[in-house]
Amino acid sequence: MTEKHGPPIPHGRGGDLPEKDGLPERTRAYWIGRGMLGLFSLPGMILLISFSGFAAFAAQSGIPMAQAVFMTGIIWALPAKVILVGSIVSGAPLIAAFLAVTLSSIRLMPMIAALIPEIRTAKTPSWALLLVSHLIAITAWVMAMERVQAVPRPHRLAFVAALGLTLTLSCMALVALVYPFVSTFPPLVAGCLFFLTPVYFLASIWSSARQRVIPVALVIGLFIGPFAALAVPDFDILVSGIGGGTLAWMIERAWRKREGKAA
């Protein structure tokens, strides 16, 4: 999906990429353009389809169009928005809605913590990272983690900002456009559109994983997720993430130590 520049990056490398990594010299404007063009990609199209689904959901839930567009820009993460609309529909008070949304958004913390070391330089100001962090949700995170490797480090923040801002603004425009035409799709089509998102996340995270711990964590999280949802419905994502992630990290570390002994 991404163009390959220079030699391929070996798997399992700890992200210790040098500043000069044999990538061709390009201007900042070129990388901003490449970031914006991220919209016209398979994940970009899947995201737009997911947001047309959200527009339909918001309309059917009685949220005015302007508020649906406002939510898209100000929250951006799709699961958080679905939960907020769900809380609104059930008539939840502010504190209950806040708690439900904030629980679903905790996952953004480790995602962004993992992305920041990939995109900052010694000179990057924190306020710039705080601003760009708003543009990160699952799709933008997966795309950024995957594509930033082909971008020279000094241009990475601009690349991610351009990618995230283009995705956010396009989805806001799409929600406004689709909202008035919420006609019901046939169930088969609606079902397939819904299914695109999970399948896309699986395929792209696996294919872009550079550290071995990522596929291990992916498989463990997949298996724990549904059981955690049944056992601890309100904290399942948190439990699967911390529990499953720690287990994956321990397994991969033990594996690495055995290899170290064998070598």
Partner: peptide, 13 residues
């Protein structure tokens, strides 16, 4: 990284 990936995987599943 492991925690972030497992979190996303749980959302997916």
């Amino acid at each position: 990284r492991a925690v972030a990936t497992a979190l996303v995987a749980a959302v997916v599943s």
